[in-house]
């Protein structure tokens, strides 16, 4: 499980030219986060992707930013992006309505190694918007549930109001074959669940470390502490996978922005095994 898959699934003629997609629906997830479901405008486009991959998403005249794909990898041409409004481009995306157009370049990058961990326990650890790139992996795992042993989701949000995909999480929670634990940094009145950072869930989570593969996505600091907790429980270095984030301008290894030591996060990542990057993630300003 050393290598992370990085197949190119759609044939892209000029990887620098966006394809036009249109918004099918927009759904508000939390106060600052929404999900756009989009589809290609041109017929004949076949958009396939692997869980964990991202697109470069362009708003006409405004700008282009990397956004993970958050939809089911088995549903081609029905792509979802879950986006948190933080700045110029993501706020412009927040204003898009059904029928509006977007430019898409992708899918780019490596993916969660879901096909290479059958018979394993799967632990998915997400912080905040980090759940978005993990959702395609969850869909895939749940629709091939028999291939895996225990499947556990540990999800941390800032407050109960920041929890993404609330209805879906409830559905997942009601399944007998999926253990879902949610925690918040700060509770609000009425919150009866866990309070505390997501790493506090790791020591008690039900998995067999020897035979566990972990997928982790969230703020970098959360991923560092999560990795350490997982290692403490005995999960192997090469079985922990993290999705890294850096400034990205091209998405295809040509602009230099996303460099992380010897790696280009856009094409060698964003998903890396802990053993690939452990020498760098604890250093500052890399």
């Amino acid at each position: 499980m050393e290598l992370v898959e990085k197949e190119l699934l759609t044939t892209i003629q000029n990887p620098m030219l966006p394809l036009t997609f249109q918004v099918r629906s927009r759904r508000q997830e939390t106060k600052d986060t929404f999900t756009l479901e989009i589809e290609p405008v041109e017929s004949g486009v076949e958009f396939k992707f692997l869980p964990g991959q991202f697109n470069m998403v362009y708003v006409f005249g405004v700008g282009e930013v990397p956004i993970s794909i958050s939809s089911d990898p088995n549903r081609w041409n029905r792509i979802a992006h879950t986006i948190r409004m933080v700045g110029v481009v993501t706020k412009a995306m927040g204003k898009l309505k059904k029928g509006d157009l977007l430019g898409i370049r992708g899918p780019f990058g490596s993916s969660w190694p879901i096909d290479r961990c059958s018979e394993c326990d799967i632990v998915i650890v997400a912080g905040g918007i980090g759940l978005a790139p993990l959702r395609p992996a969850i869909y895939h795992i749940l629709s091939n549930r028999e291939k895996y042993n225990r499947v556990v989701l540990l999800y941390g949000a800032r407050t109960p109001d920041d929890i993404l995909y609330k209805n879906e999480i409830e559905k997942w929670r009601s399944r007998f074959d999926f253990e879902v634990y949610v925690t918040v940094d700060r509770g609000t009145t009425g919150w009866k669940g866990n309070v505390g950072v997501v790493t506090t869930l790791i020591p008690r989570a039900p998995f067999n470390p020897e035979n566990t593969v972990a997928f982790v996505c969230g703020p970098e600091i959360m991923m560092r502490f999560t990795s350490l907790e997982l290692l403490k429980r005995g999960v192997k270095e090469h079985n922990i996978f993290l999705s890294m984030e850096r400034n990205m301008k091209c998405g295809i290894g040509l602009c230099g922005h996303c460099q992380f030591g010897p790696a280009f996060i856009c094409k060698d990542g964003p998903v890396f095994s802990y053993s690939q990057i452990k020498d760098l993630i604890f250093k500052r300003e890399i």
Binding site: Y58, F60, E64, K249, G256, Q259
Partner: peptide
């Protein structure tokens, strides 16, 4: 080889372009 891109639009918002420029780490 590092570069960046700027996305610009005209005043009417009817046309847009992407301009690539040399950038520096």
């Amino acid at each position: 080889f590092c570069n960046t891109v700027e996305d610009v639009t005209d005043l009417t918002g009817q046309s847009a372009k992407r301009i690539r420029k040399w950038d520096s780490c």
